[in-house]
Design a protein around this nucleic acid. Sequence first.
DNA 1: GTCTATATGCCGATAGAC
DNA 2: GTCTATCGGCATATAGAC
Lengths: 204, 204
Amino acid sequence: MNQASPRALQTRQRVLDVAARQFRAHGYAGVSLRAIATEAGMKAGSLYYHFDSKETIVSAVLDIGIERVHAHVAGTVDGLASDVQAPSLLRTAIGAHLAAFHLHGDYTSANVRIFGQVPASVRRANLPARRRYDRWWEDLLARLVDDGALRSDLDIRSSRLLLIGAMNSSLDWFDPKRGDLDALAARYADIVLFGMMPHPVSRR
Amino acid sequence: MNQASPRALQTRQRVLDVAARQFRAHGYAGVSLRAIATEAGMKAGSLYYHFDSKETIVSAVLDIGIERVHAHVAGTVDGLASDVQAPSLLRTAIGAHLAAFHLHGDYTSANVRIFGQVPASVRRANLPARRRYDRWWEDLLARLVDDGALRSDLDIRSSRLLLIGAMNSSLDWFDPKRGDLDALAARYADIVLFGMMPHPVSRR
DNA sequence: GTCTATATGCCGATAGAC
DNA sequence: GTCTATCGGCATATAGAC
């Protein structure tokens, strides 16, 4: 198991893609190794050449769901010029999170949906990746508050949880193949930055 | 099954409470009728006196998760005086949704978490209740926009989805036994109404 | 209303052939 | 790398005693 040949790596990736899609659709316990193997074009016993157990498969799926998003968002936002204003910075981060979340929708949705129903050891293994990404967002928000770019009375943690929670829940209803992801990001950023109330003075 | 005696109704409710808690924790397929029966103080076969199948149990859990919240929120907000301003109206609705959602946390969390992984027929049966509650929120937002109390360019549907998605995701991290639910509702309402940007003029 | 007993079938995992 | 065959266990659901 866990071979390094290119052929084995490709098979491994195909199995994970199938597993992510099925975990997203049916939950952790609702997916059998037989079902994953069938859709990946092999028999259940063959999976054990690539993975030690069902738990190591789901563990890999959960980690990928966080790490691909983190890498894309951080890579996009941290590369911006240092004079970019807070509204554009937040808009870019929101757009990058939504884009990566939906691009890797099976992995991210599987993570969001089954994290709470996976064996405790698997949950524990995924926690560090989650904490790193959470921290990236809190660092961003804290920096913007310190710069005076966001309200000074903002509670960082609940602001981050509101924003991430709202974006992640779009996995349940938004289909990136049918809708305009940039438009969605713009509408969410508008509300989060300026609120739903009418603007007493023009601020855009 | 489905008896009307007070004794049977009480047992039925106890079974549903146990089932909701377990579905929330382990997903639909991750819960066995044996496990539900054990925690409810009976044997698996006895459940069939009260319910026809595992699907009828989860169907009842899903419906309760929506209907109790809808009844509480609508009962709270629709009873307000007609001269209540938009900000207080929205604040009240947000507070009522969060309060009911966490009060019935096992049912509401089970609904949010397993709706997507339940058999299609069960999902279909729960859809009307979901649509009724969604419509209640969209009617509220549309009325406030029409009155000029909210921004006229607000997209009703995505605003509703952002707001409900953000509130529902608090089920994953907020513990009403340890945190202040009213404070959470106030912070969420502040962001949704006025945004995270500093206010150019005082509006509160 | 709840029990025991059981029918039928799928589960994760392993062993060993090829 | 993938196969077949198989282990022991647990799943939903039913039948019938009490």
